[in-house]
Design a protein around this nucleic acid. Structure first.
Lengths: 186, 186
DNA sequence: CTTGTTGTGTACCATTTGGTACAAATTAGC
DNA sequence: GCTAATTTGTACCAAATGGTACACAACAAG
């Protein structure tokens, strides 16, 4: 059996990504996890909302560890930014996977987890902006470029999913990576 | 009373935008439209799916008329592109409104209306790409720029909604408008 | 082996879901 | 003003929703 909370969270993330919050039914959750309601409500006493919250937390945690932390290294900011693109590409399965935060942002879940969603995007843009500054960007240019990159990633995920063409995401990453290069910073 | 199908479709669009497909309940639909189920199922014999389909069709139609058609004008392609940005800014209520197609793409609805969603984004990128070509862009550069613009718009809408800051969308439009200028076409 | 705790499955719950039936109201056409 | 068609509200439906109760299993500690 699954039994481990982190394993369950992984599956839950996948389900929420596919169906959004409202569309993720408990019946599908019990099916895909193989867990009865008893175990499920033992692991997540707050029910569906608790499950979603756990998933959101896990995603935020993953980004903190794998993207933000490396980006904070005061020396070698370019390395941190490059690393971000690599990890993001991997995280979204080269464009095959959708963004949970983005899905929730356009869904019922927005009203349920506004602060979590906001924090995710705020952290991301801020981290990237400061890294860009340290990499030589002027203050406003850094802020704007960070916004462009994060939005570009989200949009490319939407487009890739809509057209069923992950290559769109790969192209976007390449483009945005170039965008953060020092040649266009002004 | 409302009675007019187009009025109802307008309200339905708003509801689907706010809650996604799965999250839009018939009870809210009857409340917001003020129509009983009788009238609703008379107007849309296929129920909720029919309502969503009508809304999708209406959106596609709006874009066809207000964005694509002006963009097809063989002379003055720059005007068509400029016009697109203006209309898009207006359509999304300066960043306060979310994109229905994007919301559906990240939702259950994706499996229900794959061709409609695909057609929307495919039409948009293709129209824009040919306009950009006529405006002087090289073939591949035009394709790539179109992809960047459409993705950028979608991403900016996600970001603006997540952070509750419509200005993000306005900045993105300004940025992308510049991106389609002849100065960067390569 | 006993005991107490931690998990787990099943049956059940009220509520809500999307959808239907149908009679009454409204609106035509004449 | 009468009839026939179109609209509309209400009551109803089975199914599914998220959630709870609770008995039982696993398992550790003593």
């Amino acid at each position: 059996m699954v039994t481990e909370r982190s394993d369950v969270t992984q599956i839950l993330a996948e389900i929420f990504r596919e169906h959004g919050y409202a569309g993720a039914s408990l019946s599908e959750i019990t099916n895909r996890t193989g867990l009865g309601k008893g175990s499920l409500y033992h692991l997540f006493p707050d029910g569906k909302e608790g499950m979603a919250r756990a998933v959101l937390f896990e995603v935020a945690d993953w980004f903190e560890e794998n993207v933000f932390m490396p980006m904070r290294a005061p020396d070698n900011p370019d390395g941190g930014i490059d690393h971000m693109f690599t990890e993001v590409l991997r995280f979204f399965d080269t464009g095959r996977r959708t963004c949970l935060m983005g899905a929730f942002a356009l869904d019922d879940a927005r009203d349920r987890f506004p602060s979590e969603i906001q924090a995710y995007f705020l952290d991301w843009t801020r981290m990237l902006a400061t890294a860009l500054r340290r990499s030589g960007f002027e203050k406003n240019a850094a802020r704007e470029a960070a916004e462009e990159v994060v939005a570009g990633i989200q949009g490319a995920l939407v487009l890739a999913r809509s057209l069923g063409d992950p290559a769109i995401f790969v192209r976007a990453i390449k483009r945005l990576r170039k965008r953060t290069g020092l040649d266009q910073q002004v």
